[in-house]
Every structure is written in C-alpha cells, then in structure tokens.
Design a protein around this nucleic acid. Structure first.
Lengths: 218, 218
DNA sequence: GTCTATAAACAGATAGAC
DNA sequence: GTCTATCTGTTTATAGAC
C-alpha cells in the first residue's frame, strides 16, 4: 500500500480513480457508487483501489483532500492582506462572489465537488468533521470578517453569521439546484455569459443586503 | 398487490413504511437505504414492502406522493386570489417566505423531504421529471408572477426567473446546509425564536432585492 | 395481511500470477 | 503496478405457510 495519504497525483491511474470517485460519489452517494463502477469509469482495475488507497474508505478520504486543494485555489482569500476600509471590504466580498459564482455556475468538476461535500455533511459520515473544520468554518469566519468590516457591525454577531449564510445560500443554490434551474431556464448548460449575469445579480443582491444591514443595525 | 398508487394511508403499516423510507432515502439516498433497514425502522416485515408497494421502486414513488401532498399544504398559494397591486404582491411574497422559512428551519419532517427531493433531482432518477413538473415548476412560476407584480417587471423575463431562484436559494440553504449552520452557530437545533430571526433576515433581504430590481430595471 | 425461508445477483476485499 | 479469480457477506425479490 503506497502513498495512501498523498494528495499529489503522480500516478495517472491514481488521479483517474480520484476523479471518477469524485464524480460518482457526488452523483450517487458513497454507498451507492460501487468500486467496480468507479474502476470502470477510470479505466482501471478494481484491485487498483485497494492498492492505491487501501480500500473504498481511503478513496473517500482522497476525494476530500482533492477538494480541499482545489478550494484553496478558488477562494484564495488567505493570501491577500485583510482590507481596512468598509469600501475595500465590500469590494473584496464582491470579487469573492464573482469568482465563486463563475466557478460554481460553469465548471463541470464543481458539480461533483459541491455534491460530494453536501452529501458528506448531510449524511454526517466519518469525514464530516474533517470537511467542516478544514474547508467550511475558516472560510465562513473570513467572510464574516469582511461583512463586519463592510457594514461596521460585529463580525461574530449572530446577525452577521446568519447574513453570511444567506449570501452563501444564494451562490451555492445555483450549483446545487442547477438541474432544476437549467430546466426552468430552458438551458442545457450555463454559458459564460449567463454565469456573468448570475454574478451581476448576486453582487446586486449583496450590495442591497449590505445596505439593509447598515440601515438596520447602525 | 393492493392500492399501490394510493396516497391516503389507511393502513398503519403502509404509513409507517413511507415515513421510514422518506427518512432513510433522504438521509442516505435511495440505493444506500436497504429495504431491511426501512422495514426495521418502521417496525414492519421486509416482505411488507413488496406487498404494499410492489417493490422498492414503488416505495420511492409513494414518498414523492407524500411530499407532494405535504407541500401543497405548506405553500397553499394556489387557493388565494392573485394580488393586483405591487404592495399586495410584496406582502404575499413576504408571507410565503416566512411560512416556508418557519417550516424549513424547524420541522423535522422537512429535513427528510428536502433531502429526498434534492437527491432525486441531482441523481436525475426515474422520478426527477415527475418531481419537477408536479412540485417545482408551477410554484416557481407563481413566485415569478408575484415578483413581476411587485417590481413591475416581466414575470417570465430571465432576470426575474433568476432573481426568484436567488431568493429560493437563501431559504432552502437554511435547510440543506443546516448541519453546517448549526455547528457554526453553536446550536443543536433551530429554536422557534431563531427561526423567527432567520425569517426576519430573509424578509429584509427580499425587500432589499426587490428595491434593487426596481432601481435597475424600471 | 403478515410472516419465514430461500433464491439469484450484487457488494468489497484479497491472494497470487505476471 | 496491474491483472484474474475467488471468498464472504449483503442486497432485492419471491414462494409459500399461516
């Protein structure tokens, strides 16, 4: 059993297995996706899963690590210096929303990743804790910091935390509910143009919500 | 094989099976939830599933019918006369949001139903079409009517349909993402008080978004 | 209507050849 | 590292007693 915990994918079979697993776990759920199906989808042998990951559970963990790595790239908030003025915070929130919206609305891998994370959380599986602490909590906290700076309110107040969840809900629903949205819109995919218009809408809602917050809690 | 398609639950075993199936399908997914587990959870025998529903698939269909019936009660928009003034439309939207938010945030069955529907849609299972047409589309259309009336814009324009999806996203995220939200808020459940505050937040965001729409597209 | 017993297909894991 | 073959347990569905 070699590099079971390695996130880097030097081996092409290993990488293909993670990609296929992410797709099938996300689409059908962990239990419903069989190792045979995953191996076939990756063009690999069933035994390769045990070899590279030690078993099905190891493959699940490898998926979490792959998502964590990808997510760090898309929401690279951590690297930038924290904004000092309300206006700078507002702009930072705006650019985060646009970036995440573009990623969520279009990119195919995002579908699998979002579905996978959501499932792991709602099923409260063995990796729910890991996912929450490594990917969710710190990012929400950072968004609360920006929101607090932008509105002049306490970043860790209940109102702020809930407001950030409402904002997040808008963005990720365009991913989670996408099959429904596509049908209703008469689209077969979200074009780059459409993703831009969705981003515009979400930013407009962001500004409206920020203004409403400032007016309510001065 | 008796009343396979009956939605009314005269038989207590039948009703218990639907309830247990809704819970387990919603929590673990259709494939992952075994008929043995469902029967045990309902205090019934495995063979009762084949007897009452013709098989596992029939049980799945019975779940859809149960949700459809429940949803008609919670979002009883259809019965009321359509509002004529923008202000009446705004109030109608507000009351729908509060009602759905209260249901989504607290009631335990809502967890199972929301998770079940979401899964069926994202897995694009055999009942995805039924669910979309019987439960999603007409309600979204009705909300678009209200939104259009409230803002004076075309109810079926792209902007309106997307704006309604953004609004819906906020509401249902407080159900879908609830395990995450509870952790972050330090709650172990959403109290009635908290549900009220979440409703306040969502209504405030609704008003802000409506105002932003009016300003943008006069 | 509800139960037991069983059939036929499937799952994940592993031993060992190459 | 990758493959075939096989072991062991679990799945849904069903036949038939009561």
């Amino acid at each position: 059993m070699p590099d079971t915990s390695r996130a880097t994918d030097r081996n092409p079979t290993r990488a293909a297995l993670v990609e296929a697993a992410l797709h099938l776990f996300g689409r059908k759920g962990y239990d419903a996706a069989s190792t045979r199906e995953i191996a076939a989808h990756a063009g690999a042998n069933i035994a390769a899963i045990a070899y590279h990951f030690g078993g099905k559970e190891g493959l699940r963990l490898a998926c979490v690590e792959a998502i964590s790595a990808q997510m760090g790239q898309v929401m690279a908030l951590d690297a930038l210096p924290p904004p000092t003025t309300p206006d700078a915070a507002r702009q930072r929130l705006e650019s985060v929303i646009r970036q995440v919206a573009r990623f969520m609305a279009s990119a195919a891998p995002a579908q699998d990743m979002a579905a996978f994370v959501l499932r792991e959380i709602t099923e409260n599986g063995p990796l729910a804790d890991t996912i929450y602490h490594r990917m969710m909590e710190q990012r929400h906290r950072m968004l609360c910091q920006l929101w607090g700076r932008a509105t002049g309110t306490d970043p860790e107040s209940e109102a702020t935390r809930l407001a950030v969840f409402a904002m997040i809900g808008q963005v990720i629903y365009f991913r989670i509910g996408q099959p429904m949205i596509l049908r209703r819109m008469g689209w077969d995919a979200i074009s780059p143009d459409a993703a831009g218009r969705i981003g515009d809408l979400l930013v407009r809602n962001l500004h409206a919500a920020l203004a409403a917050t400032e007016r309510t809690t001065p």
